[in-house]
Simulated assay, not measured.
Amino acid sequence: MENLHIVFWLLKDISWCMIWKPLGVAMIFPTLIISLVIAWRTRQFMSELCHNVAISLWITANSYWMISEFFHFDMLTVWGAVTYKHLALVPFVSGLLILAYYYIWYQPRHKETEEIM
Protein backbone atom coordinates (compact mmCIF):
# COMPACT_ATOMS: atom_id res chain seq x y z
CA MET A 1 0.00 0.00 0.00
CA GLU A 2 2.83 2.40 0.82
CA ASN A 3 4.47 1.76 -2.55
CA LEU A 4 1.19 2.29 -4.42
CA HIS A 5 0.77 5.52 -2.47
CA ILE A 6 4.06 6.77 -3.94
CA VAL A 7 2.88 5.93 -7.49
CA PHE A 8 -0.30 7.99 -7.00
CA TRP A 9 1.69 10.84 -5.47
CA LEU A 10 4.12 10.89 -8.40
CA LEU A 11 1.26 10.79 -10.90
CA LYS A 12 -0.34 13.75 -9.11
CA ASP A 13 2.85 15.80 -9.17
CA ILE A 14 3.71 14.88 -12.78
CA SER A 15 0.18 15.94 -13.75
CA TRP A 16 0.74 19.22 -11.93
CA CYS A 17 4.01 19.78 -13.77
CA MET A 18 2.45 18.93 -17.14
CA ILE A 19 -0.78 20.84 -16.36
CA TRP A 20 -2.94 17.75 -16.81
CA LYS A 21 -5.79 19.03 -14.66
CA PRO A 22 -8.20 16.05 -14.70
CA LEU A 23 -5.52 13.49 -13.83
CA GLY A 24 -3.90 15.78 -11.24
CA VAL A 25 -7.17 16.42 -9.44
CA ALA A 26 -8.20 12.75 -9.69
CA MET A 27 -4.90 11.60 -8.13
CA ILE A 28 -5.50 13.72 -5.04
CA PHE A 29 -8.10 11.28 -3.75
CA PRO A 30 -6.19 7.97 -3.82
CA THR A 31 -3.01 9.70 -2.66
CA LEU A 32 -4.66 11.36 0.32
CA ILE A 33 -6.92 8.41 1.21
CA ILE A 34 -4.02 5.96 1.25
CA SER A 35 -1.90 8.33 3.36
CA LEU A 36 -4.74 8.58 5.88
CA VAL A 37 -5.17 4.78 5.93
CA ILE A 38 -1.43 4.38 6.53
CA ALA A 39 -1.62 6.91 9.39
CA TRP A 40 -4.60 5.06 10.88
CA ARG A 41 -2.86 1.69 10.66
CA THR A 42 0.24 3.02 12.43
CA ARG A 43 -1.64 4.89 15.16
CA GLN A 44 -0.31 2.63 17.92
CA PHE A 45 3.25 3.93 17.30
CA MET A 46 3.51 7.65 18.05
CA SER A 47 6.56 8.10 15.83
CA GLU A 48 4.86 6.56 12.80
CA LEU A 49 1.57 8.30 13.50
CA CYS A 50 3.13 11.77 13.74
CA HIS A 51 5.17 11.29 10.58
CA ASN A 52 2.25 9.84 8.62
CA VAL A 53 -0.13 12.59 9.71
CA ALA A 54 2.53 15.14 8.68
CA ILE A 55 2.72 13.42 5.28
CA SER A 56 -1.07 13.59 4.94
CA LEU A 57 -0.96 17.30 5.74
CA TRP A 58 1.86 17.75 3.21
CA ILE A 59 -0.25 16.03 0.53
CA THR A 60 -3.21 18.23 1.49
CA ALA A 61 -1.14 21.41 1.20
CA ASN A 62 0.48 20.26 -2.01
CA SER A 63 -2.90 19.34 -3.52
CA TYR A 64 -4.47 22.66 -2.55
CA TRP A 65 -1.51 24.51 -4.07
CA MET A 66 -1.87 22.49 -7.28
CA ILE A 67 -5.61 23.24 -7.49
CA SER A 68 -5.02 26.93 -6.86
CA GLU A 69 -2.62 27.02 -9.80
CA PHE A 70 -4.81 24.88 -12.06
CA PHE A 71 -7.82 27.13 -11.56
CA HIS A 72 -5.83 30.39 -11.50
CA PHE A 73 -6.75 31.69 -8.07
CA ASP A 74 -3.27 31.18 -6.62
CA MET A 75 -2.26 34.82 -7.03
CA LEU A 76 -5.55 36.40 -5.97
CA THR A 77 -5.23 38.34 -2.74
CA VAL A 78 -6.90 37.10 0.42
CA TRP A 79 -5.68 39.79 2.79
CA GLY A 80 -2.87 42.31 2.33
CA ALA A 81 0.00 40.56 0.56
CA VAL A 82 -1.38 37.09 1.38
CA THR A 83 -2.57 35.17 -1.67
CA TYR A 84 -4.65 32.02 -1.89
CA LYS A 85 -1.46 30.07 -2.62
CA HIS A 86 -0.14 31.17 0.78
CA LEU A 87 -3.07 29.38 2.44
CA ALA A 88 -1.22 26.14 1.66
CA LEU A 89 1.06 27.14 4.53
CA VAL A 90 -1.68 26.20 7.01
CA PRO A 91 -1.39 22.42 6.47
CA PHE A 92 2.38 22.68 5.79
CA VAL A 93 2.98 24.42 9.13
CA SER A 94 0.52 22.09 10.89
CA GLY A 95 2.62 19.13 9.76
CA LEU A 96 5.77 20.83 11.01
CA LEU A 97 4.12 21.53 14.37
CA ILE A 98 3.14 17.88 14.74
CA LEU A 99 6.72 16.82 14.05
CA ALA A 100 8.04 19.49 16.41
CA TYR A 101 5.71 18.16 19.11
CA TYR A 102 7.00 14.65 18.52
CA TYR A 103 10.71 15.50 18.51
CA ILE A 104 10.74 18.25 21.13
CA TRP A 105 8.17 17.02 23.64
CA TYR A 106 7.02 13.43 23.11
CA GLN A 107 10.19 11.56 22.11
CA PRO A 108 12.43 12.86 24.93
CA ARG A 109 9.81 11.79 27.48
CA HIS A 110 9.25 8.32 26.02
CA LYS A 111 12.73 7.12 25.02
CA GLU A 112 12.50 3.96 27.09
CA THR A 113 9.28 2.71 25.49
CA GLU A 114 10.49 3.46 21.95
CA GLU A 115 13.80 1.64 22.49
CA ILE A 116 11.88 -1.50 23.50
CA MET A 117 9.84 -1.50 20.27
Results as ranks from 00 to 15, higher is better:
Leu76Ala: 09
Glu48Ile: 07
Val53Arg: 02
Trp79Asn: 15
Ser35Gln: 04
Trp20Arg: 08
Trp16Asn: 07
Ala81Gln: 12
Met1Phe: 10
Ile116Glu: 11
Leu76Arg: 09
Thr113Ile: 11
Phe71Met: 08
His51Met: 13
Leu49Tyr: 07
Lys111Gln: 12
Phe8Val: 05
Gly24Ala: 05
Asp74Trp: 10
Ile104Tyr: 00
Thr83Leu: 09
Leu11Arg: 04
Leu96Asn: 01
Trp105Arg: 05
Thr77Asn: 10
Trp79Gln: 03
Lys12Val: 00
Leu96His: 03
Phe70Gly: 07
Glu48His: 14
Leu76Gly: 02
Phe71Gln: 01
Lys12Phe: 04
Met75Lys: 15
Leu4Trp: 09
Phe45Ser: 14
Tyr84Lys: 09
Leu49Gly: 01
Ile14Trp: 10
Met1Trp: 05
His86Pro: 01
Pro22Gly: 14
Phe92Gln: 05
Thr60Gln: 00
Glu48Thr: 13
Arg109Phe: 04
Leu10Thr: 10
Arg41His: 07
Ser68Pro: 04
Leu89Glu: 13
His5Glu: 11
Gly95Asp: 01
Leu57Cys: 10
Ala61Lys: 10
Phe70Pro: 04
Lys12His: 14
Val90Trp: 11
Met18Lys: 13
Glu69Trp: 09
Phe71Lys: 06
Glu112Val: 11
Phe29Val: 14
Glu112Lys: 15
Met66Ser: 07
Ile34Asp: 01
Pro108Thr: 03
Ser47Ile: 09
Ala26His: 00
Leu96Thr: 03
Asn62Gln: 07
Leu99Asn: 13
Asn62Leu: 01
Gly95Lys: 01
Trp20Ile: 10
Leu49Phe: 13
Ala54Gly: 09
His5Asp: 13
Lys111Arg: 07
Ile67Thr: 06
Lys12Leu: 15
Phe8Gly: 02
Val7His: 11
Ala26Met: 02
